[in-house]
Design a protein around this nucleic acid. Structure first.
Lengths: 232, 232
DNA sequence: TTAACCGCTTAACACTATTTAACAGCCTTT
DNA sequence: AAAGGCTGTTAAATAGTGTTAAGCGGTTAA
């Protein structure tokens, strides 16, 4: 089953606090990956599909800010919450500017933590919501109008069927990122059974044909995972 | 009580609370679909004609906000009530802006829940009622007067037959959104049998002919779903 | 009263969208 | 490198739609 779970990477050198955070978040239904220092943290990030990072600022081997920068290098959209001592608060405020970031000063209550996490998740959901209702997407030289079920490049115009349309909309929403096969099936076909899956493959072929003139547009398969729309 | 035909999707991971909600709502005459997590919730929504969603915010696999977003993607007009812990109240208030949304903090009484549900249903009925009795619709440069069964653009005037009129009224009420084929049949023809369905296709053709002068007005078919009136 | 008309339904046929099937090729694991 | 599952592609079968025109019952006007 494709985990649409929210996975949180927790990097905290204090063993007690780390365990406590991990347990609490697991109870709340999150997948948790717990690491004790910056280096292990980076490995943890690479190995899993992390949705959100909870990073201690002061840690051995590699501090939280540095780790955050490295993570951003790998996937720029991952939101990060920093954990730090109260005494460093002023310092912290200037330490990051990315809109996805947030911070909490120790000591903190689990409720406060949950508020921050929920706030971030909502921010992300809102972004996705906007994408869902976006009027037009740019796919290199093509314009895609989901509401009109239409693709245009110069004189070229192509009406899309509803399945083509919804599938392409999804790919555009996650442009550059892999859309999970089962997620796509559930969203477009309403069921992720075998036959719909094959049907989707047929539609991927159709979409590829539409864009075959343009070498810079590719729909790439990620074996066993799904597809991504890539524009060079 | 006219709760008979209203189907409520309840997604709640706490088994006791879920059962309790379900039983209570059934006693009140609602159809209830109960699911225990976000993924099952989405499937439940796809499988049935859901009129209203009652979603726990914090759930395993997929949280309530994410689920709501996906449901909105499938049918943007479905009202959602979120269930969440008291401690997150302030946070919640800002978390959603859709007029159809509402929230309740745990613990709550069943009476409070019923009040919320009734309020939402009243709001929806009122909106539909207003649209139903709307005196005129703007369809790009055309004016459509359902009561007069008349369409006007400049000199051009076209009297509509009652079937044309009711079908166009429906399309206008859901302007930009797909009107479900069977819904339309039941509303305009009173029965969604095969022959009425073919009859409706004939009327769609008639309506298209009326607007064929104007490239910006389209009646688009959504295969296997229905039709939408789209004005660019 | 009958002929013309009108609104709607039914039939017929062409066409389109989607699913299913079949087979070839590819990726990952052992 | 062989096996098995996953993907790519094409073509067929099925299901849904678009359009035109004939048919049918009811109303209107000579």
């Amino acid at each position: 089953m494709e985990n649409k779970n929210t996975t949180i990477l927790v990097v905290e050198d204090d063993e007690n606090l780390g365990k406590m955070l991990s347990d609490y978040l697991k109870v709340k239904g999150f997948e948790v990956i717990l690491k004790r220092d910056g280096e292990a943290g980076l490995k943890g990030f690479i190995e899993s599909e992390v949705d959100l990072c909870l990073l201690d600022v002061m840690m051995p081997k590699k501090d939280g800010f540095t780790l955050a920068k490295e993570i951003r290098g790998l996937k720029s959209s991952v939101p990060v919450i920093f954990l730090s001592a109260k005494t460093m608060e002023e310092d912290l405020k200037m330490g990051f500017q990315s809109g996805a970031d947030d911070y909490i000063t120790k000591p903190f209550s689990m409720e406060v933590l949950m508020l921050r996490i929920e706030a971030i998740m909502r921010r992300i959901n809102q972004i996705e919501d906007n994408l869902l209702h976006k009027k037009e997407f740019d796919i290199n030289e093509y314009k895609f109008y989901p509401e009109k079920q239409l693709i245009i490049r110069g004189d070229f115009e192509k009406k899309l069927t509803s399945k083509e349309n919804e599938l392409l909309r999804l790919l555009c929403m996650y442009m550059g990122n892999v859309v999970d096969r089962n997620d796509a099936l559930n969203m477009v076909w309403g069921d992720d059974n075998y036959f719909n899956s094959r049907s989707m493959d047929v539609y991927i072929t159709k979409l590829r044909k539409i864009f075959k003139e343009d070498e810079n547009i590719q729909i790439i398969n990620s074996h066993g995972k799904g597809f991504k729309l890539l524009v060079d």
